[in-house]
């Protein structure tokens, strides 16, 4: 059952997907192609402000995110902009919320937009969606099931969503709206899509735990401890892979998995892959095509043993 249609959307990859999150970018585009969905990259986009700019000034973050929405809505005429990165997705949603609720946000955004020379974005002019909504709403579980060529059967997956996809609740008014909608306390869109691709999802309690991404470099020991908890919980739940839907979480897990072993002697074997990579494999794409070889966490042997090339 699909309730919305995002066959053609503006695509906002964001900075991380051009750097360390390259395999997420690649697999998202390949999955889109395989599913017949069209992505039109936002023209001359800028950084959304990530987690850092708001600490200097939250209104600048709102402006930065609004510029991306302004281009997608006004210059490109889109109704929806899709961001696979949780940070970008979160910031666009946050900007939308602030612009519809706070006079000061509207005033600063208007002032900066006018000086920068582009149309001011106003709340309600475009809808921001995550890569999960994109597939879930347009293709749906049945649609995905029908397209699966290499079912993920036998692959035990822990679905990890992190912080920015669900918190704080108030910036996601469409969530927690009963059956069919996403939940902020127990998100399930990724679980649903991977189950439709045949994966065996494990019962994983730390779905929305924090990986310490904000302090990956500035307070590495805290991040390593938080990541270790997540890796351990996933292994204890029987997972062979952790599926991610955020480049910051993904590289945080990869990096601190290595750091946990080096610094604290805590070794874990669970592999970290993007959910789009898993869906790509299920759709019959090769590991290379979805960038499995580009992940730091080496899941090639595991995936080969499961019959994926």
């Amino acid at each position: 059952m699909t309730n919305k249609n995002y066959e053609t959307v503006a695509y906002y990859p964001g900075c991380a997907l051009e750097g360390s999150g390259q395999p997420y970018n690649r697999s998202t585009k390949e999955v889109g192609k395989a599913l017949g969905l069209k992505l039109e990259e936002v023209k001359n986009w800028n950084c959304c402000g990530a987690m850092e700019v708001k600490n200097i000034d939250p209104e600048i973050q709102t402006y930065l995110s609004s510029r991306v929405m302004s281009i997608a809505a006004h210059e490109m005429g889109h109704k929806a902009v899709m961001a696979p990165c949780n940070g970008c997705y979160h910031n666009l949603k946050k900007a939308e919320y602030d612009l519809s609720h706070k006079e000061n946000s509207r005033a600063v955004t208007k002032r900066l937009s006018e000086k920068a020379g582009h149309q001011t974005y106003e709340a309600g002019q475009i809808e921001t969606i995550h890569a999960l909504d994109w597939i879930k709403d347009t293709i749906g579980e049945d649609g995905l099931k029908a397209r699966v060529k290499n079912n993920l059967k036998g692959l035990k997956v822990a679905n990890y969503y992190g912080c920015m996809y669900t918190r704080p609740r108030n910036i996601f008014p469409e969530k927690d709206q009963g059956p069919g909608s996403e939940s902020t306390s127990n998100p399930h869109f990724m679980d649903d899509l991977l189950a439709a691709s045949g994966a065996d999802n494990v019962d994983f309690a730390l779905k929305t735990a924090c990986c310490g991404g904000a302090h990956t470099l500035s307070d590495s020991d805290t991040s390593t401890r938080l990541v270790s908890n997540i890796l351990q919980a996933a292994e204890e739940a029987g997972a062979e892979v952790i599926a991610t839907e955020c480049p910051t979480c993904h590289s945080g897990l990869e990096m601190h998995q290595i750091r946990a072993e080096k610094k604290f002697g805590t070794k874990s074997n669970v592999k970290i892959v993007y959910f789009t990579q898993l869906i790509g494999l299920a759709l019959g794409l090769s590991g290379r095509k979805v960038g499995i070889h580009e992940n730091i966490s080496n899941s090639t042997t595991l995936l080969r043993s499961k019959g994926f090339k």
Binding site: M51, C163, M164, T166, R167, P168, R169, T184, C210, G212, G213, A214, H215, D219, T222, S223, L226
Partner: peptide, 10 residues
Amino acid sequence: QCVSCNKCTS
């Protein structure tokens, strides 16, 4: 050392 997880905010 706050990691900005927003659990508090939620």
